[in-house]
Design a protein around this nucleic acid. Sequence first.
DNA 1: GTGTAAACTAGAACGATTCCCATGCAAAAA
DNA 2: TTTTTGCATGGGAATCGTTCTAGTTTACAC
Lengths: 152, 152
Amino acid sequence: MSDSTDLKKAGLKATLPRLKILSILEEPRARHMTAEDVYKALLDMGEEVGLATVYRVLTQFESAGLVIRHNFEGGRSVFEINQGGHHDHVVCVECGEVFEFYDPAIEERQRRVAETLGFHVDSHSLYMYGTCLGMKREGRCSKKRIPGTGTP
Amino acid sequence: MSDSTDLKKAGLKATLPRLKILSILEEPRARHMTAEDVYKALLDMGEEVGLATVYRVLTQFESAGLVIRHNFEGGRSVFEINQGGHHDHVVCVECGEVFEFYDPAIEERQRRVAETLGFHVDSHSLYMYGTCLGMKREGRCSKKRIPGTGTP
DNA sequence: GTGTAAACTAGAACGATTCCCATGCAAAAA
DNA sequence: TTTTTGCATGGGAATCGTTCTAGTTTACAC
Protein backbone atom coordinates (compact mmCIF):
# COMPACT_ATOMS: atom_id res chain seq x y z
CA MET A 1 0.00 0.00 0.00
CA SER A 2 1.27 3.50 -0.79
CA ASP A 3 2.30 6.00 1.86
CA SER A 4 -0.39 8.31 0.55
CA THR A 5 -3.06 5.73 1.31
CA ASP A 6 -1.57 5.12 4.76
CA LEU A 7 -1.92 8.80 5.54
CA LYS A 8 -5.49 9.09 4.29
CA LYS A 9 -6.47 6.04 6.29
CA ALA A 10 -5.07 7.78 9.34
CA GLY A 11 -7.22 10.82 8.57
CA LEU A 12 -4.32 12.99 7.46
CA LYS A 13 -3.98 14.87 4.20
CA ALA A 14 -1.26 13.53 1.96
CA THR A 15 0.99 16.56 1.95
CA LEU A 16 4.52 16.61 0.67
CA PRO A 17 6.25 17.03 4.05
CA ARG A 18 4.24 14.19 5.56
CA LEU A 19 5.03 11.87 2.66
CA LYS A 20 8.72 12.70 2.85
CA ILE A 21 8.90 12.17 6.58
CA LEU A 22 7.06 8.89 6.31
CA SER A 23 9.38 7.64 3.60
CA ILE A 24 12.42 8.53 5.68
CA LEU A 25 11.11 6.62 8.65
CA GLU A 26 10.32 3.65 6.43
CA GLU A 27 13.89 3.20 5.28
CA PRO A 28 15.17 0.01 6.89
CA ARG A 29 18.30 1.70 8.21
CA ALA A 30 16.28 4.47 9.87
CA ARG A 31 14.72 2.63 12.80
CA HIS A 32 15.25 5.00 15.73
CA MET A 33 15.49 8.67 14.87
CA THR A 34 15.16 11.91 16.80
CA ALA A 35 13.17 14.79 15.33
CA GLU A 36 16.50 16.45 14.60
CA ASP A 37 17.70 13.36 12.71
CA VAL A 38 14.61 13.42 10.53
CA TYR A 39 15.03 17.13 9.93
CA LYS A 40 18.65 16.67 8.88
CA ALA A 41 17.72 13.80 6.60
CA LEU A 42 15.20 16.08 4.91
CA LEU A 43 17.78 18.81 4.43
CA ASP A 44 20.23 16.27 3.04
CA MET A 45 17.73 15.26 0.40
CA GLY A 46 17.25 18.93 -0.44
CA GLU A 47 13.77 19.33 1.01
CA GLU A 48 12.56 22.65 2.39
CA VAL A 49 10.84 21.53 5.56
CA GLY A 50 10.76 23.40 8.83
CA LEU A 51 11.79 21.78 12.08
CA ALA A 52 8.46 22.78 13.59
CA THR A 53 6.72 20.81 10.87
CA VAL A 54 8.81 17.76 11.65
CA TYR A 55 7.79 17.90 15.30
CA ARG A 56 4.15 18.51 14.45
CA VAL A 57 4.04 15.72 11.91
CA LEU A 58 5.79 13.25 14.18
CA THR A 59 3.31 14.00 16.93
CA GLN A 60 0.43 13.54 14.51
CA PHE A 61 1.91 10.27 13.34
CA GLU A 62 2.19 9.18 16.92
CA SER A 63 -1.47 9.97 17.61
CA ALA A 64 -2.42 8.15 14.44
CA GLY A 65 -0.41 5.14 15.53
CA LEU A 66 1.93 5.34 12.55
CA VAL A 67 5.00 5.84 14.70
CA ILE A 68 6.00 5.08 18.27
CA ARG A 69 7.73 7.60 20.49
CA HIS A 70 10.35 6.44 22.95
CA ASN A 71 11.85 8.37 25.84
CA PHE A 72 15.29 6.92 26.23
CA GLU A 73 17.65 8.08 28.95
CA GLY A 74 18.77 11.65 28.39
CA GLY A 75 15.32 13.09 27.94
CA ARG A 76 14.99 13.50 24.21
CA SER A 77 12.45 11.56 22.18
CA VAL A 78 13.25 9.06 19.47
CA PHE A 79 10.74 7.88 16.91
CA GLU A 80 10.33 4.54 15.24
CA ILE A 81 7.90 3.47 12.56
CA ASN A 82 5.15 1.25 13.88
CA GLN A 83 5.33 -2.01 12.03
CA GLY A 84 2.81 -3.75 14.18
CA GLY A 85 4.75 -6.12 16.35
CA HIS A 86 5.34 -4.77 19.82
CA HIS A 87 8.87 -5.12 21.11
CA ASP A 88 11.14 -3.78 23.81
CA HIS A 89 14.59 -2.24 23.59
CA VAL A 90 18.17 -2.79 24.62
CA VAL A 91 20.35 0.29 24.32
CA CYS A 92 24.14 0.20 24.27
CA VAL A 93 25.41 3.19 26.21
CA GLU A 94 28.82 2.87 24.57
CA CYS A 95 27.92 2.99 20.91
CA GLY A 96 24.30 4.13 21.11
CA GLU A 97 23.10 1.19 19.09
CA VAL A 98 19.55 0.04 19.77
CA PHE A 99 18.50 -3.59 19.62
CA GLU A 100 15.01 -4.98 19.84
CA PHE A 101 13.56 -8.01 21.51
CA TYR A 102 10.24 -9.52 22.37
CA ASP A 103 9.64 -11.85 25.27
CA PRO A 104 6.14 -13.29 25.62
CA ALA A 105 6.76 -14.30 29.21
CA ILE A 106 7.60 -10.72 30.20
CA GLU A 107 4.53 -9.40 28.42
CA GLU A 108 2.36 -11.94 30.20
CA ARG A 109 3.79 -11.13 33.62
CA GLN A 110 3.22 -7.43 33.02
CA ARG A 111 -0.40 -8.10 32.15
CA ARG A 112 -0.69 -10.08 35.35
CA VAL A 113 0.85 -7.37 37.51
CA ALA A 114 -1.50 -4.74 36.07
CA GLU A 115 -4.47 -7.01 36.63
CA THR A 116 -3.49 -7.60 40.24
CA LEU A 117 -3.26 -3.87 40.82
CA GLY A 118 -6.60 -3.22 39.14
CA PHE A 119 -4.83 -1.05 36.61
CA HIS A 120 -5.80 -0.51 33.00
CA VAL A 121 -2.61 -0.33 30.94
CA ASP A 122 -2.52 1.84 27.82
CA SER A 123 1.12 1.34 27.04
CA HIS A 124 4.32 0.20 28.59
CA SER A 125 7.99 0.60 27.91
CA LEU A 126 10.91 -1.54 28.89
CA TYR A 127 14.46 -0.46 28.22
CA MET A 128 17.69 -2.12 29.22
CA TYR A 129 20.87 -0.05 29.19
CA GLY A 130 24.36 -1.50 29.10
CA THR A 131 27.18 -2.45 26.77
CA CYS A 132 27.02 -4.76 23.80
CA LEU A 133 30.06 -6.88 24.67
CA GLY A 134 30.74 -9.42 21.97
CA MET A 135 27.75 -8.22 20.01
CA LYS A 136 28.34 -9.28 16.49
CA ARG A 137 27.50 -6.19 14.45
CA GLU A 138 30.83 -5.32 12.78
CA GLY A 139 32.72 -7.45 15.24
CA ARG A 140 32.02 -5.38 18.31
CA CYS A 141 30.55 -2.28 19.85
CA SER A 142 30.86 0.24 17.01
CA LYS A 143 31.54 3.33 19.13
CA LYS A 144 29.33 5.31 16.80
CA ARG A 145 27.08 7.52 18.81
CA ILE A 146 23.40 7.79 17.98
CA PRO A 147 21.68 10.97 19.18
CA GLY A 148 19.26 10.58 22.00
CA THR A 149 20.88 7.55 23.51
CA GLY A 150 23.71 6.66 25.77
CA THR A 151 25.69 8.58 28.32
CA PRO A 152 28.00 11.51 27.55
CA MET B 1 22.91 6.14 60.10
CA SER B 2 22.86 9.92 59.70
CA ASP B 3 22.54 11.71 56.38
CA SER B 4 25.91 13.26 57.03
CA THR B 5 27.50 9.82 57.18
CA ASP B 6 25.68 8.78 54.01
CA LEU B 7 27.19 11.71 52.17
CA LYS B 8 30.71 11.14 53.42
CA LYS B 9 30.49 7.50 52.46
CA ALA B 10 29.52 8.63 48.97
CA GLY B 11 32.60 10.85 48.84
CA LEU B 12 30.66 14.08 49.15
CA LYS B 13 31.19 16.81 51.70
CA ALA B 14 28.29 17.17 54.08
CA THR B 15 27.24 20.67 53.10
CA LEU B 16 24.00 22.30 54.16
CA PRO B 17 22.28 22.23 50.75
CA ARG B 18 23.14 18.59 50.29
CA LEU B 19 21.87 17.64 53.74
CA LYS B 20 18.65 19.56 53.20
CA ILE B 21 18.02 18.01 49.82
CA LEU B 22 18.71 14.55 51.14
CA SER B 23 16.35 15.04 54.05
CA ILE B 24 13.59 16.20 51.71
CA LEU B 25 13.98 13.15 49.51
CA GLU B 26 13.94 10.91 52.56
CA GLU B 27 10.53 12.04 53.72
CA PRO B 28 8.18 9.12 53.18
CA ARG B 29 5.66 11.25 51.29
CA ALA B 30 8.31 12.52 48.89
CA ARG B 31 8.95 9.44 46.75
CA HIS B 32 9.02 10.87 43.21
CA MET B 33 10.02 14.51 42.88
CA THR B 34 11.21 16.72 40.06
CA ALA B 35 14.14 19.09 40.61
CA GLU B 36 11.59 21.90 40.68
CA ASP B 37 9.61 20.11 43.41
CA VAL B 38 12.72 19.80 45.54
CA TYR B 39 13.56 23.47 44.93
CA LYS B 40 10.07 24.55 45.97
CA ALA B 41 10.23 22.38 49.06
CA LEU B 42 13.47 24.11 50.02
CA LEU B 43 11.96 27.55 49.55
CA ASP B 44 8.96 26.51 51.62
CA MET B 45 11.21 25.58 54.51
CA GLY B 46 12.92 28.96 54.16
CA GLU B 47 16.20 27.73 52.75
CA GLU B 48 18.30 29.87 50.42
CA VAL B 49 19.29 27.35 47.79
CA GLY B 50 19.71 28.03 44.10
CA LEU B 51 17.96 25.94 41.49
CA ALA B 52 21.29 25.25 39.85
CA THR B 53 22.51 23.75 43.09
CA VAL B 54 19.49 21.49 43.26
CA TYR B 55 20.21 20.15 39.79
CA ARG B 56 23.90 19.79 40.51
CA VAL B 57 23.33 18.00 43.80
CA LEU B 58 20.71 15.67 42.37
CA THR B 59 23.08 14.67 39.59
CA GLN B 60 25.85 14.06 42.12
CA PHE B 61 23.49 11.97 44.23
CA GLU B 62 22.61 9.98 41.15
CA SER B 63 26.27 9.30 40.36
CA ALA B 64 26.81 8.31 43.96
CA GLY B 65 23.86 5.93 43.80
CA LEU B 66 21.94 7.77 46.51
CA VAL B 67 19.03 8.59 44.23
CA ILE B 68 17.58 7.14 41.05
CA ARG B 69 16.60 9.30 38.12
CA HIS B 70 13.58 8.35 36.06
CA ASN B 71 12.62 9.67 32.66
CA PHE B 72 8.87 9.30 32.60
CA GLU B 73 6.86 10.21 29.53
CA GLY B 74 6.84 13.95 28.99
CA GLY B 75 10.57 14.44 29.11
CA ARG B 76 11.26 15.75 32.55
CA SER B 77 13.21 13.82 35.14
CA VAL B 78 11.90 12.68 38.48
CA PHE B 79 14.09 11.61 41.34
CA GLU B 80 13.55 8.99 43.96
CA ILE B 81 15.69 8.06 46.92
CA ASN B 82 17.49 4.76 46.46
CA GLN B 83 16.41 2.50 49.26
CA GLY B 84 18.11 -0.53 47.88
CA GLY B 85 15.30 -2.70 46.60
CA HIS B 86 14.90 -2.41 42.85
CA HIS B 87 11.37 -1.98 41.60
CA ASP B 88 9.50 -0.91 38.50
CA HIS B 89 6.76 1.65 38.05
CA VAL B 90 3.14 1.98 37.09
CA VAL B 91 2.09 5.51 36.24
CA CYS B 92 -1.52 6.67 36.13
CA VAL B 93 -1.88 9.10 33.24
CA GLU B 94 -5.10 10.45 34.72
CA CYS B 95 -3.95 11.46 38.17
CA GLY B 96 -0.18 11.22 37.79
CA GLU B 97 0.11 8.88 40.73
CA VAL B 98 3.06 6.51 40.65
CA PHE B 99 2.90 3.01 42.03
CA GLU B 100 5.73 0.56 42.43
CA PHE B 101 5.99 -3.15 41.92
CA TYR B 102 8.58 -5.86 41.77
CA ASP B 103 8.20 -9.06 39.84
CA PRO B 104 11.01 -11.60 40.17
CA ALA B 105 9.87 -13.48 37.07
CA ILE B 106 10.20 -10.35 34.91
CA GLU B 107 13.63 -9.61 36.34
CA GLU B 108 14.76 -13.14 35.63
CA ARG B 109 13.48 -13.07 32.05
CA GLN B 110 15.26 -9.77 31.44
CA ARG B 111 18.49 -11.25 32.70
CA ARG B 112 17.98 -14.15 30.34
CA VAL B 113 17.30 -11.95 27.32
CA ALA B 114 20.43 -9.89 27.96
CA GLU B 115 22.47 -13.04 28.37
CA THR B 116 21.19 -14.43 25.09
CA LEU B 117 22.15 -11.21 23.34
CA GLY B 118 25.60 -11.19 24.89
CA PHE B 119 24.75 -7.87 26.48
CA HIS B 120 26.05 -6.53 29.78
CA VAL B 121 23.18 -4.67 31.48
CA ASP B 122 23.95 -1.68 33.71
CA SER B 123 20.38 -0.70 34.38
CA HIS B 124 16.92 -1.17 33.09
CA SER B 125 13.63 0.60 33.40
CA LEU B 126 10.11 -0.67 33.01
CA TYR B 127 7.15 1.66 33.10
CA MET B 128 3.51 0.90 32.53
CA TYR B 129 1.19 3.78 31.71
CA GLY B 130 -2.55 3.66 32.10
CA THR B 131 -5.38 4.47 34.47
CA CYS B 132 -5.76 3.33 38.03
CA LEU B 133 -9.37 2.13 37.81
CA GLY B 134 -10.58 0.92 41.15
CA MET B 135 -7.27 1.66 42.78
CA LYS B 136 -7.95 2.06 46.42
CA ARG B 137 -5.97 5.16 47.40
CA GLU B 138 -8.65 7.58 48.60
CA GLY B 139 -11.37 5.59 46.89
CA ARG B 140 -10.23 6.10 43.34
CA CYS B 141 -7.99 7.90 40.93
CA SER B 142 -7.28 11.09 42.84
CA LYS B 143 -7.05 13.46 39.85
CA LYS B 144 -4.17 15.15 41.56
CA ARG B 145 -1.46 15.80 39.01
CA ILE B 146 2.14 15.08 39.84
CA PRO B 147 4.67 17.03 37.76
CA GLY B 148 6.61 15.09 35.22
CA THR B 149 4.03 12.42 34.68
CA GLY B 150 0.88 11.82 32.73
CA THR B 151 -0.60 13.37 29.63
CA PRO B 152 -2.06 16.90 29.40
C1' DG C 1 -10.97 26.07 -11.76
C1' DT C 2 -12.38 27.84 -7.12
C1' DG C 3 -13.19 28.19 -2.11
C1' DT C 4 -12.11 26.83 2.34
C1' DA C 5 -10.16 24.39 5.94
C1' DA C 6 -6.06 22.37 6.96
C1' DA C 7 -1.07 22.45 6.65
C1' DC C 8 2.97 24.91 5.88
C1' DT C 9 7.33 28.00 7.07
C1' DA C 10 10.15 30.88 9.87
C1' DG C 11 10.97 32.68 13.81
C1' DA C 12 9.74 33.81 18.51
C1' DA C 13 8.67 31.75 22.83
C1' DC C 14 8.91 28.31 26.17
C1' DG C 15 10.29 25.12 30.02
C1' DA C 16 13.80 22.21 31.71
C1' DT C 17 18.47 21.90 32.41
C1' DT C 18 23.31 23.30 32.28
C1' DC C 19 26.99 26.63 32.14
C1' DC C 20 29.66 30.45 33.90
C1' DC C 21 31.90 33.00 37.25
C1' DA C 22 32.52 35.80 41.19
C1' DT C 23 32.05 34.74 46.03
C1' DG C 24 32.05 31.77 50.20
C1' DC C 25 33.75 28.50 53.16
C1' DA C 26 36.28 24.58 55.15
C1' DA C 27 40.22 21.55 55.30
C1' DA C 28 45.34 21.49 54.63
C1' DA C 29 49.69 23.85 54.85
C1' DA C 30 52.69 27.00 56.81
C1' DT D 1 46.82 31.21 64.11
C1' DT D 2 47.16 32.81 59.57
C1' DT D 3 47.48 31.66 54.82
C1' DT D 4 46.54 28.89 51.06
C1' DT D 5 44.00 25.88 48.27
C1' DG D 6 40.17 24.02 46.19
C1' DC D 7 35.58 22.44 46.09
C1' DA D 8 30.69 24.27 46.67
C1' DT D 9 27.51 27.76 46.00
C1' DG D 10 24.02 31.18 43.95
C1' DG D 11 22.25 33.86 40.37
C1' DG D 12 21.78 34.85 35.99
C1' DA D 13 22.77 33.95 31.32
C1' DA D 14 22.98 30.39 27.89
C1' DT D 15 21.58 26.22 25.74
C1' DC D 16 18.77 22.49 24.41
C1' DG D 17 14.71 20.26 22.70
C1' DT D 18 10.19 21.35 21.76
C1' DT D 19 5.89 24.07 20.98
C1' DC D 20 3.37 28.22 19.73
C1' DT D 21 2.17 32.22 16.62
C1' DA D 22 1.34 34.72 12.48
C1' DG D 23 0.94 35.01 8.04
C1' DT D 24 1.16 32.30 3.65
C1' DT D 25 0.39 28.20 0.84
C1' DT D 26 -1.69 23.83 -0.37
C1' DA D 27 -4.84 19.80 -0.85
C1' DC D 28 -9.06 18.35 -2.02
C1' DA D 29 -14.32 18.56 -2.50
C1' DC D 30 -17.26 20.92 -5.26
